[in-house]
């Protein structure tokens, strides 16, 4: 597809480091006195999909707003490709596309005009063929002459993505892209994000849907009360904090665990029909073999077994809740 060729970002300049965005000591206190960000340090790698996880009010949108120019930082600095986001805002903002959380649209504008407007606003010359490519990719081409007010919520969301991509940004911010979006569109959007990443676009998304981060992200950052709690490779995070559980369904219900079998990692279900064993899947000895042996010795017959690993959501909840308030 021709327009896709446009979207290839220029290769990073020689000597550019791996981090496309560096946030250093960023602070934000609103006029009301509310401290939305406490000294945030964050580095985003070139070409990655980074998911910023946090509950409502954790500071996700403030952080994005500060990088994109919507929020005036109270302290610290932001570097994008080595350019300071305040002093050199033109260079920084030309690289960034922002898809806001709310469906902010000009109801009476036509779809095509509003996307062309975005391109011009970001300093790019007209390119109807490129706009056509974006609209086709987001299944909006058929609607190009419609007024925005006539679009469904899902189409408006796609339109906002089209507007954000109109100036061929190399960094795309998606603020809560799945808010109020149905499952099908969410899948479509995820595919779109993967396609963009394949073209070299760095993507930062905020979400409180763990599923979304789990599905898409290379790395995950968790923000709570204006502080970054951790930044980790998603897989590492899940491995490091992930517990695996082995559930054993018993042939005969047990009243209590026999002495030879009982241990802190093992719990008996209330109905006595199943046992749950928690283990670390990374360790040399998971203890599973020993457990099964001791069960056999105690004459306990296992009918079926299943394992599961803790989801990012459980990890997230334990991180956020586990912190002293």
């Amino acid at each position: 597809m021709r327009p896709a060729a446009h979207a290839h970002p220029a290769p990073p300049p020689a000597g550019a480091d791996d981090f496309v965005i560096r946030v250093e000591g960023l602070e934000k206190t609103y006029a009301s006195g509310f401290k939305a960000l406490e000294t945030v340090d964050l580095a985003i790698r070139r070409g990655e999909i980074f998911a910023l996880l946090g509950e409502n009010g954790a500071g996700k949108s403030t952080l994005i707003g500060a990088i994109c120019g919507l929020v005036r930082p109270s302290g610290g600095r932001i570097l994008v490709d080595g350019h300071d986001a305040v002093a050199d805002y033109r260079a920084v903002r030309a690289k960034i596309g922002l898809v806001p959380q709310e469906l902010h649209v000009d109801s009476f504008e036509r779809v095509m005009d509003t996307v062309a407007f975005s391109r011009g606003l970001f300093g790019k010359p007209r390119d109807p063929a490129f706009i056509e490519g974006i609209l086709r990719e987001l299944s909006l081409w058929e609607k190009r002459n419609d007024k925005i007010i006539a679009l469904s919520g899902g189409m408006k969301r796609r339109l906002l993505i089209a507007k954000a991509l109109a100036h061929e940004p190399t960094i795309l911010f998606l603020d809560e892209p799945s808010a109020g979006v149905d499952v099908e569109l969410r899948r479509e959007m995820w595919q779109m994000v993967h396609r963009l990443r394949a073209r070299g676009v760095t993507i930062i998304l905020t979400t409180h849907y763990i599923e979304e981060a789990e599905e898409m992200a290379d790395r995950v950052g968790v923000i709570n009360k204006g502080e970054i709690l951790l930044v980790e490779e998603k897989t590492t995070l899940m491995r490091k904090l992930g517990r695996r559980e082995l559930t054993l369904h018993l042939r005969e219900p047990l009243a209590a665990l026999p002495d030879g079998v009982a241990g802190p990692a093992l719990t008996l279900a209330e109905d006595g029909r199943s046992l749950t064993y928690v283990f670390d899947s990374q360790s040399e000895d998971t203890g599973i073999a020993g457990l099964l042996r001791s069960l056999a010795e105690a004459g306990i017959e296992v009918r079926d077994l299943a394992t599961s690993e803790s989801s990012l959501e459980e990890i997230f909840v334990s991180l956020v809740r586990g912190r002293p308030q």
Partner: peptide, 8 residues
Amino acid sequence: YELLSAPV
């Protein structure tokens, strides 16, 4: 938001 985030 778009105007504020644009290199303008």
